[in-house]
Computed example of a mutant assay.
Amino acid sequence: MVLSGDASLLKGKVIAVLGYGNQGEAQAKVLRDSGLEVIVGNVNDEYRRRAERDGFRVYDIPEAASRADIIMVLLPDEVQPLVFNDVVKAVGDRDAVIDFASGYNVAFGLIRPPDRYDVVMVAPRMIGAGILELHSKGMGYPVLIGVANDHSGRAWDYAVAIAAGIGAIGRPGGIGVKVTFKQEAFIDLLDEHTNWPLILASFMAFFDVATEKYGVPPEAVLLEMYASGEMAEVASRMASLGAFEQLRLHSTTSQYGQLSRAFKFYDMVRRVVEDEASQIWLGDFAREWTLEQLAGKPKFNALWDAARGSDMARGEDGLFRLLGRR
């Protein structure tokens, strides 16, 4: 279901944006430009000082929550469970709307908001810098909207109003799509577990085969794969034209090669996607990642060491230095 509306329901409300990072800064600024009263909750770090320089009243996170009618939890996923009980204590028994920009913690039981609050999700499909750029042009962007708890009977209205207030819907290019918290978390993780890792694995295998077995210069391989920027241009055309229609901008040799191999590889990739989807939906990944964090992230750090130590990473570093990017 596609949703539409405006931000009028938020007029006269105090909105606390918790976390002034990538999404927090962008959403706070757009909400303020929409004529709404916005305060920021953040720990004492550079992000807090940035919010103060940007003219916001900034408080510790519980204090900001205690002053607000609408509480937007825009902290990193792994931080949210550590502070959420303090937020709940600060809000107490009064009515409040709690908004999440990701369904992850609520969907997998890492946060269990009390029933006495409206609990909504407005999840932008746009990075913070992109939100601000589009806002400057009067343009909107896609968001996924959900409700986990409708205590007041108006939770959906509040969710839609927040989506309008942050400049997503009600503008050209904007769209709000109704989903559950779990559906949002599921497709977000599935994208991160299949599309992007498969692309990275393809790059790594491409690089190793081309350089080790066929002697192609690393610089040529990296430029062909992504370093030239051509891949980013293709992705941009996918967003504007569609994954298949953008193929018409390629040579017929390229069209045939891509389509024939996509259908050739489909069954193999489908099995990978099915397996990852099951692990995500059943909560296996959420448990895995929680345990990894509790252990001090040893596997996470080892994976980064392996990536940085790869031949491809070394080749990339050399090329990017030649190009003046590092």
Rank of each mutant, 00 (worst) to 15 (best):
L3K: 00
S8Q: 04
S8M: 01
K11D: 03
G12K: 07
I15T: 07
L18K: 09
L18S: 03
Q23P: 11
E25P: 03
V30C: 06
V30N: 03
V30E: 04
D33A: 13
D33F: 06
L36W: 08
E37P: 02
E37H: 04
V43W: 06
N44Y: 09
D45C: 01
D45E: 01
Y47A: 13
R53S: 15
R53A: 15
D54W: 03
V58N: 14
I61M: 12
P62I: 10
A64R: 12
A64V: 09
S66E: 15
L74H: 02
E78K: 01
F84C: 01
F84H: 02
V88C: 00
V91G: 05
V91E: 00
A96H: 03
A96C: 01
N105M: 02
R112A: 04
P113D: 07
D118T: 04
V120Q: 03
A123S: 12
R125A: 06
M126S: 04
G128D: 04
E133T: 01
H135C: 00
S136Q: 08
K137R: 10
V143F: 09
I145P: 15
G153D: 15
G153A: 13
D157Q: 12
Y158H: 15
A159C: 14
G170A: 11
R171G: 06
R171V: 11
I175H: 05
A185W: 02
F186Y: 15
I187M: 13
I187H: 14
H193S: 09
W196C: 11
L198Y: 07
A201D: 12
S202K: 06
S202N: 14
S202A: 15
M204K: 13
A205F: 02
A205I: 08
D208R: 14
V209A: 14
A210T: 00
A210R: 02
V216F: 06
V216I: 13
E219G: 09
A220T: 10
V221L: 04
V221W: 04
M225G: 04
M225H: 02
G229D: 10
E230W: 10
E233N: 11
A235P: 00
S240I: 08
G242K: 13
G242P: 14
A243M: 14
F244H: 08
L247M: 13
H250F: 15
S251I: 09
T253G: 12
S254L: 04
S254Q: 10
Q258W: 09
S260K: 05
S260W: 02
S260L: 06
Y266H: 11
V269Y: 06
V273I: 15
S278V: 10
I280K: 06
I280M: 07
L282W: 07
A286L: 05
R287E: 11
L291K: 03
E292L: 02
L294R: 12
L294V: 02
A295W: 10
F300H: 13
N301W: 10
W304N: 09
W304G: 09
W304A: 07
A306P: 00
A307H: 09
S310C: 12
D311N: 05
G315R: 11
E316R: 13
L319T: 08
R321E: 13
G324Y: 07
G324C: 02
R325A: 11
R326D: 05
